[in-house]
């Protein structure tokens, strides 16, 4: 819009309306600043708490650092990073989240391709079955799978946690990938088929390169989901294989006395998701928009 257009539009408003408009906007601005501050308080509070000693945290609130900034210390982080349980569980979180994400993306896009571009009997019924499984609560899986993994000897192992996450991540992954792949113009696939390319070749050379945005969306969504999970790991991991969330929650019983471990641990567990979020938030939003009814 050029400057001239703006003046024309403005000219149509009465003086009163113009004043009202400015007034409204400044009210909106003030309210939004307050809302944003409210929304930031929890995270800032956690960060500042993690930077204070347990003694300070037991006697005063984190907001006192604004008047006494000398309280700030990296002590808690140093203590936690030399704590084998915490560092071990940090690695476990990575060992759980990365393979889960990889296999969900791999299996999900393979199946998504089959559902989108291959003809086989019962295809629609299978797809409807996948859509039904989309909303199944993980609670339904807990008891049977715990029993099954017990019999298989993988209850309490990282493998078990990963398998559980892959299985319950797949319906959404298949659904998302299938929806995206069907939007790829059929001419591209036809051309490749006429050239005599096999399905695997088409998948690797046509679908995957074109599907990078969708694959990125799915990968980020699944990674954050798995990284942040507590319930599955609470049941399927043991003290050797537990991820960060489980290690931290075990300190909850003495909330006040463990506030240093809890706040610092919680913040460490947030760092990677926050980096991923800020770097790739566009893809994360895409995954949410594409439907997240899980």
């Amino acid at each position: 819009m050029t400057g001239a257009d703006l003046t024309i539009v403005r000219g149509k408003k009465t003086v009163g309306q113009r004043i009202l408009g400015v007034f409204n906007n400044s009210i909106v601005n003030v309210v939004f600043v307050l809302v944003a501050l409210f929304w930031l308080v929890p995270s800032v509070g956690l960060l500042l708490s993690s930077l204070r000693t347990v003694g300070d945290s037991a006697s005063s609130g984190w907001w006192t650092v604004f008047t006494e900034p000398t309280q700030l210390t990296l002590e808690n982080y140093a203590a936690l990073l030399s704590n084998d349980t915490i560092t071990g569980s940090f690695w476990n979180t990575i060992l759980i989240a990365v393979p889960t994400t990889f296999f969900v993306v791999l299996f999900g896009s393979l199946a998504g391709y089959a559902f989108a571009w291959m003809e086989f009997p019962g295809r629609d019924w299978l797809l409807i079955a996948v859509i039904i499984l989309l909303a199944v609560p993980i609670q339904v899986g807990l008891i049977p799978i715990a029993r099954m993994f017990g019999a298989l000897g993988i209850f309490g192992s990282i493998l078990g946690v990963v398998l559980f996450h892959i299985a319950f991540g797949l319906p959404f992954a298949i659904f998302l990938m299938r929806n995206f792949f069907t939007q790829i113009p059929s001419e591209l696939l036809e051309a490749a088929r006429l050239d005599g390319a096999s399905d695997l070749r088409i998948f690797l050379t046509v679908i995957v390169p074109l599907g990078v945005p969708a694959i990125a969306s799915l990968a980020i969504f699944q990674f954050l989901w798995t990284w942040n999970d507590m319930l599955v790991a609470l049941i399927f991991s043991n003290s050797q294989s537990q991820p960060l969330t489980v290690a931290i929650q075990s300190q909850l019983r003495q909330f006040g006395a463990n506030i240093d471990v809890l706040s610092t641990g919680a913040f460490i567990s947030m760092i990677i998701p926050l980096i991923v979020f800020f770097a790739f938030q566009r893809y994360f939003v895409q995954a949410l928009l594409a439907g997240s009814q899980r």
Binding site: W39, V41, P42, S49, T245, F277, Q281
Partner: peptide, 29 residues
């Protein structure tokens, strides 16, 4: 700012809120 909490675990969010709502006014904001 509003969307960011979606990225963090509910465990971390839980720790945060439990801290904020502590009864002792010297500790809970």
């Amino acid at each position: 700012i509003i969307f960011m909490p979606m990225a963090i675990s509910m465990l971390a969010a839980g720790v945060i809120f439990r801290m904020m709502f502590q009864e002792n006014p010297n500790l809970g904001v």
